[in-house]
Design a protein around this nucleic acid. Sequence first.
DNA 1: CTTTTTTGCACAATCGATGGTGCAAATAAT
DNA 2: ATTATTTGCACCATCGATTGTGCAAAAAAG
Lengths: 353, 353
Amino acid sequence: MRQQGKKKATIYDLSVLSGCSASTVSAVLNGTWRKRRIKESTAELIQNLAEQHQYTANLQARGLRNSRSGLVGLLLPVHDNRYFSSMAQTFEAQVRSHGKCPIVVSASRDPQEELATVETLIAYSIDELFIAGATDPDSVHTLCEAAGIRHINIDLPGTKAPSVISDNYQGARMLTEAIVRRFDAADQLRPQELFLFGGRNDHASRERIRGFRDIKMELLGADDDACIQPTGYSPNMTQRAFEAFYEREGKLPRGLFINSSINFEGLLRFMAQHPHETFADIVVGCYDYDPFASFLPFPVIMIRQDSESMLAKAFELIEESRPVVEIHLIQPELVHPRTALMGPLDSIRDIDR
Amino acid sequence: MRQQGKKKATIYDLSVLSGCSASTVSAVLNGTWRKRRIKESTAELIQNLAEQHQYTANLQARGLRNSRSGLVGLLLPVHDNRYFSSMAQTFEAQVRSHGKCPIVVSASRDPQEELATVETLIAYSIDELFIAGATDPDSVHTLCEAAGIRHINIDLPGTKAPSVISDNYQGARMLTEAIVRRFDAADQLRPQELFLFGGRNDHASRERIRGFRDIKMELLGADDDACIQPTGYSPNMTQRAFEAFYEREGKLPRGLFINSSINFEGLLRFMAQHPHETFADIVVGCYDYDPFASFLPFPVIMIRQDSESMLAKAFELIEESRPVVEIHLIQPELVHPRTALMGPLDSIRDIDR
DNA sequence: CTTTTTTGCACAATCGATGGTGCAAATAAT
DNA sequence: ATTATTTGCACCATCGATTGTGCAAAAAAG
């Protein structure tokens, strides 16, 4: 009974086979047949035929007709980073559980590409869009608005659509404090030994820097501008910043606040160039959690952003008819060195053995 | 001139505005207007109108008409893992450079879900499908075949469609040899000190195990079945295997071949439960590269699979009209401890700072 | 000034599914 | 037996873009 290489069956094929009209077939197969007072026996007949011929609806046709597609989009800056890829993982699961089809795309943190990508998604009539880590959420908002597409910001807030983001200020405070406390009274960290590397001029970085500086002031009593080294979200730029520092000072700062795991990769590149001893007494705090990073040869304190809760909240908000443009903060979690947390992969069953 | 919250402009709107027929508008906007001998001035008129009204084609309608969608799919087992997420990243770039729209989905290594997901993709009339790490590539093939969709296997081979995979056998040989050579003559590794953990009964695991055993035989002269511990692709199962071993032997094997970075996370979980000293003299080889893992406190030798080349080859093959069902092997790369390689993120420009 | 050729475009069918409307036949009410 | 209801389904326009075909008007050829 398999369609062998032929075209896929359509409602018209089933219409002929069943002797019913196409609209009847359609109604039966999309579940509206009771409303349309189709006889139960007719429905069964058609359902059987559909199964035999492996009918599946052409979703483009359906989408065209309804001007909805069943697609739900997630726009990411990048894929290959544990924070965003685990967000993608939980996003998929959540969308599937709502009976929709998840579609995840990345736009490289490039405003132009963000807009182009979103236009494409809109052209496919996606139903909803989750905008994560966009550099320019408000422009994206404008596009969605014009197309009547529900959307929400995640991770980086916008001013025109509801946003769900990490509490970067609190997270940074926790992280900075944890770094400081990691040193015992004997060799207490001095203010000029605690640096922040990475990030750019976006909301998340600003908040993290603010938290970092506030705690530095509170605990160490000083907060020098020179201790803030924003390098963008680029491993290489971050590496250069470390190299420059090292060349100048002959060592690394003892306390390092790294703005994201992407910037942390800059430190890795630096590490590859320098012997173990260089890192003998440093303490690193990283905003983002990566299981492998947590076990590096020096203490690495990490912040795990709760993307599961962020997405859950976002799903809740996006369903609302009259969205209130406000920012919802989700508390991140401090992760002590040498900690292997569970992740979305753990909810996947692994059968065979 | 913005459409304010209105519906999106269609060719019919532009048809009215321009005084031309819809078919003329269509031809102008999809670039076929020269073939259709449309006057240059007419084309310009329509193009201007399109721009003013922010026209973008409804891709569902276009897709319905051509029974193609411009979508190219990548089916992954999971997202949140460096190997697959970096594959997703390069996939996106490559698809975009071909003027198509990438769509990446994961199916949790669950055969049922793989099929369901692919059916959905087919229902959206995707044009091509890259099947990465599928547990059951041949069933996926059957679906694609029936729908007339070009497809190719990556990472795990099938028997019915062309496949591009890592040379897992060679990679495992290189990796195993590197582990052995890491110990100097003084305290040479003995056969029963070199174990393999992770993987299941899939092609990749089998090949890696074969390479591992062959080298063990060649270099150490023995190859005990007990040294192979397949635990599936689950961090927790892997952790348990380590715990069990440790409980039995009071230590870890000095040489560890870990089948994938997912299994490596099982070792991390084990590490979290045990003090540093437990890992004082072990050497780990991991099939998969993760930059952070490369810098752990013990030597970690890794294999970087060349997903860029794999995808490039796959793109090349998928264009061919008469696909030859054969397996193309791509050589992976041995990565020495403390190495931070560049990745797809490095080709992203980071402007602002 | 005809006839032929070229130019420029409009018409209409089509892709597959949906849902409002209408109308016979079956059943119930009187 | 006649009228009123209900049941069961067919018909057809519609979503937006594409494309084969046809036909006037303009230009070229004779």
